[in-house]
Design a protein around this nucleic acid. Structure first.
Length: 490
RNA sequence: CGGGGUGUAGCGUAGCCCGGUAUCGCGCUUGGUUUGGGACCAAGAGGUCGUAGGUUCGAAUCCUGCCACCCCGACCA
């Protein structure tokens, strides 16, 4: 195994794959397309879950759990929904194995065929709405605000760790409301929650917007999304929030009696983010040395590496560091004091950089004599020797500063890679350079598809609050009322 | 599912053309010396050469089937 990572410039996707493996985030499993999320990677996901879950609770949602298996008949109740997912569903057809009479291990018992096949959920709208039918009778039962943390399966042809896997972890919120307005408000609220999470925790700027009909979720009336720009200039859809209208209520016959004693279908939403966010996090900040994690999501925020000759010196260092570790932990900072002897300091430096630990403190005999300690920040890779006294506060301030700086850096990157484009020639040139392209579009699916065919670029979103501006579609020249954002996407 | 490629120790590989039971590096174990940016020395452990069959006295090597994985396309969060 070579020591350094492939560089981003050299081969971005190889850099990504190697980074995921070397930083011990995840690896491929025996089943094609599935991944094993390793402890270090999973602890980042847990931090994401915690933060998101708190935000969901704060906005009035409660968690529940619905089954993995969906009767095939459920899936076909909402026409566009089946159509959207049919091609990538795993299907359970039997419930028993038996020993192969010809001696070849176990085989599927042909006598154990299921009456009705079960679909491994690609998403849970159908199971959930079939329950909601029983749970909702009156306006007093509304709104129903439920979230679940679960795994889902979509049988993708080509997969990549975190970015697209056959099985992935996510949360899916499913809500039911008495009015259309309330449901739309909910959809927009959850988009805000996602955007806030992405920006404050992941330090990743996102563009909020609405999907075009082509890119809309199967079964939704409107799909809201947050879109992020990765370092290679490709866009990544980081989260979606769907206004379902009354589609699922009608498909599953979910009606309620209003205050006015009127029977009507309820209005629905669903919204989700997945382990794909891990991919976004990795690509948003990391460099050729490895991961760069925002302090708010880093499993280890500070690592302390002792440099010593002999036990005596190590003990001196321990005497100094133990109280510091205690003090930092008390302040809620996660610290690792790495006293392991089997690796040299240099190895540890490289290792923790690879793993994206925001701050590294190094302390050796020299520092003990001088009353100093060396602080290295992962984002800039700057090393500074500073007085040991007061280091605790410096660490806390620096964590905060790193969180802000990496956001600012990602924001600046997005800004400098977002271009207004007015002609087709310009569009073709700019799309090759990567980044977001803000351009006029005539509003038709035909044009959108044509552009995709010609350039591989899709409309990432119609930004929320986009200003009205009369213009001409970059491709057809037909009139357009506002710009939309194009990019090549993951 | 089309087009290309690769399967040899935990990982990365040499050997294959031209058949004689497998090379090197990393990692691992033990002991010692080290430690301010991926330490060094010594001794070890670790292999049904993807799989099934064929050719042969003899197959990692030649032939055939199968399987898996990777890359490029169509599909997608």
């Amino acid at each position: 195994m070579s020591k350094s990572l492939p560089s981003r410039a050299e081969n971005y996707s190889e850099w990504y794959n190697e980074l995921v493996k070397r930083a011990d985030l995840a690896e491929n499993s025996a089943v094609r397309g599935c991944m094993i999320i390793k402890p270090y990677g999973y602890s980042i996901w847990e931090k994401m879950q915690r933060a998101l879950d708190d935000m969901f609770k704060e906005t009035g949602h409660t968690n529940a759990y619905f089954p993995l298996f969906i009767p095939k008949s459920f899936l076909s109740k909402e026409a566009s929904h089946v159509e959207g997912f049919a091609k990538e569903c795993a299907v359970v057809t039997h419930y028993r194995l038996k020993n192969d009479p010809n001696g070849g291990g176990v085989i599927v018992d042909p006598d154990a065929k299921l009456e009705e096949e079960l679909i491994v959920r690609p998403t849970s709208e159908t199971v959930i709405w079939s329950s909601y039918k029983n749970w909702i009778q009156s306006y007093r039962d509304l709104p129903l605000l439920i979230n679940q943390w679960a795994n889902v399966v979509r049988w993708e042809m080509r997969t990549r760790l975190f970015l697209r896997t056959a099985e992935f972890l996510w949360q899916e919120g499913h809500t039911a409301h008495a009015t259309k307005k309330e449901a739309i408000d909910e959809t927009e609220q959850m988009l805000e929650v996602y955007a806030e999470f992405a920006e404050t925790f992941m330090a990743m700027p996102v563009l909020k917007g609405i999907k075009t009909a082509n890119e809309r979720f199967a079964g939704a009336e409107e799909t809201y999304c947050i879109e992020a720009l990765m370092q290679d200039g490709k866009a990544l859809q980081a989260g979606t929030s769907h206004f379902l209208g009354q589609n699922f209520a009608k498909a599953f016959d979910v009606k309620f009696l209003s205050k006015e004693n009127q029977l009507d279908y309820v209005w629905g939403t669903s919204w989700g983010v997945s382990t794909r966010l891990m991919g976004a996090l990795i690509m948003a900040h990391s460099d050729d040395q490895g991961l760069v994690l925002p302090p708010k999501l880093a499993p280890i925020q500070v690592v302390i590496v002792p440099i010593y000759k002999g036990d005596e010196q190590l003990n001196l260092i321990k005497d100094k560091i133990d109280p510091l570790v205690k003090a930092l932990k008390k302040q809620g900072v996660s610290v690792k004091f790495d006293t392991s002897e089997n690796q040299s300091p240099g190895f540890k430096f490289a290792e923790y950089e690879l793993k994206g630990v925001p701050i590294r403190l190094a302390i050796g005999g020299r520092d003990i004599e001088n009353g100093t300690i060396e602080l290295a920040r992962r984002d800039t890779r700057e090393k500074t020797s500073m007085p040991f006294d007061g280091i605790e506060q410096v660490v806390i301030d620096t964590l905060q500063d790193i969180q802000e700086k990496i956001y600012a850096k990602a924001f600046a990157f997005r800004e400098s890679n977002t271009h207004e484009v007015n002609t087709w020639e310009e569009f073709q040139t700019k799309i090759e350079e990567g980044g977001f392209i803000s351009a006029h579009w005539d509003g038709t699916s035909e044009t959108e598809e044509k552009i995709k065919e010609l350039t591989k670029a899709t409309i990432r979103c119609i930004p929320l609050g986009v200003k009205k501006e009369t213009g001409k579609c970059v491709l057809t020249g037909s009139t357009s009322e506002h710009r939309v954002i194009f990019a090549r996407a993951y």
